[in-house]
Design a protein around this nucleic acid. Structure first.
Lengths: 221, 221
DNA sequence: CCGTGTATAATTGTATACAGGGATACAATT
DNA sequence: AATTGTATCCCTGTATACAATTATACACGG
């Protein structure tokens, strides 16, 4: 989708700065000087500027004209808010997906889910990385299946946000298993063409993820 | 909020191109050449580039590396989708606003609403421009009052989208009156600290706006 | 000692220059 | 005639240069 970013310098700079903000290298209110960042990354100011302007639009950076760019950061409350918003929208997404999903997408969901279940049952234990990637994939397919560019766009954005920001938080095995079971239920509802049920399940699924995060005592820094 | 844009050239270019996409000057799949646009606006390529990169993030433009920027546009379905998403989120927003609103914000809402009602009762007829502006203001205050940067951000974005895109559509006097009555009800629910009611009313409000638009036979081009 | 004003440095804003990739047109070959 | 190769032009990607604005330091006056 946005893979093109890898090909352009500004794209890579964009991703790098974004990462550095979300994982805390740049902290709240830090000043992001174009020259400094450029030298650090071995590029000129131009790509850095373009990246900063994009980050400004995403809300991660605040630009004061003729003054500079400052890290806005993303607070713990922001994370909770995103989960609340997501819970509503993932519900809507599951509903629409139920109505628009293609056979191919159903298969992809099934495959992703089976891989997840397989990962969880490996004797040698499961790879957190792998499970997280599969989780992301499951949701991404669902977004796509909603048939709504708009909805998909905003959900993908939010997903990225929390995905990166919660990397530090530990995912318990118990929660991982439960999460996959919930995915399974959602998929079943979609296959049954029960939009109402899919919506409710997806809605609750996000709330559960959030509750788990809260229980684990997530802290932003 | 984003008024700074007015001060920088790239900001103005950004707004200009965005406007020209939303009001149809640039049509779907049109190629946006940096040089051409730059010459049209009397600026160099640099601000144009920055603007295009930002628009790409907003989803209005698609950039193919080493090829160019193309208008993605916003279809009629996109508009409906936005209204559906908004209806969910405005509900959530009203709920949170009920819990977080300040006295000052309550007063601002009241004032905005009274001005709207005044506009509608003028003997010389009402100014569509004015009423639309007040409508926007009412919602903006509500977004702010939610106390959620995240929610406010996404709702503002969507509001701008449809605001600009539906400029062509005619707003009936009947609908305008009804809309203001609905605002009045929402405000009452918030004042009563009835979050449940506020959520439901705000939710329905957006759906009504959408239904009205549909009835008027909105067409994208 | 504090505030104000001015000069200077640093940083952003914009334009231009240069390098590289892709499209098009035309020629050559099959 | 069709397809492929190649040269050229145009456009984008990046760097650099120049202009404008803001921050900093220091001197001067109160």
């Amino acid at each position: 989708m946005e893979e093109y970013q890898d090909h352009s310098l500004s794209g890579r700079v964009f991703q790098k700065i974004r990462e550095d903000i979300l994982n805390g290298k740049y902290k709240e209110n830090d000043e992001l000087r174009e020259n400094t960042i450029g030298k650090e990354l071995g590029v000129s100011r131009t790509p850095v500027r373009e990246a900063l302007r994009q980050l400004e639009l995403e809300g991660l950076v605040t630009i004061i004209p003729n003054r500079g760019a400052y890290v806005t950061g993303i607070s713990q409350k922001d994370i909770w808010d995103i989960y609340m918003v997501r819970s509503h929208l993932e519900g809507l997404c599951a509903r629409w997906a139920t109505e628009h999903i293609t056979e191919k997408q159903l298969e992809e969901l099934e495959e992703t889910l089976m891989l997840s279940e397989f990962q969880m049952n490996r004797e040698s234990g499961f790879s957190v990385q792998q499970v997280a990637a599969l989780d992301g994939r499951f949701h991404a397919i669902l977004y796509e299946a909603s048939g709504s560019r708009i909805l998909s766009h905003v959900l993908t954005d939010f997903h990225n946000y929390v995905q990166m920001a919660r990397k530090s938080s530990i995912v318990s095995e118990e929660r991982a298993r439960k999460s996959i079971r919930e995915h399974r239920q959602i998929l079943r509802a979609i296959k049954d063409r029960d939009a109402e049920m899919a919506e409710q399940l997806a809605n609750e699924h996000i709330l559960h993820v959030m509750q788990n995060l809260k229980k684990q005592g997530y802290r932003s820094e």
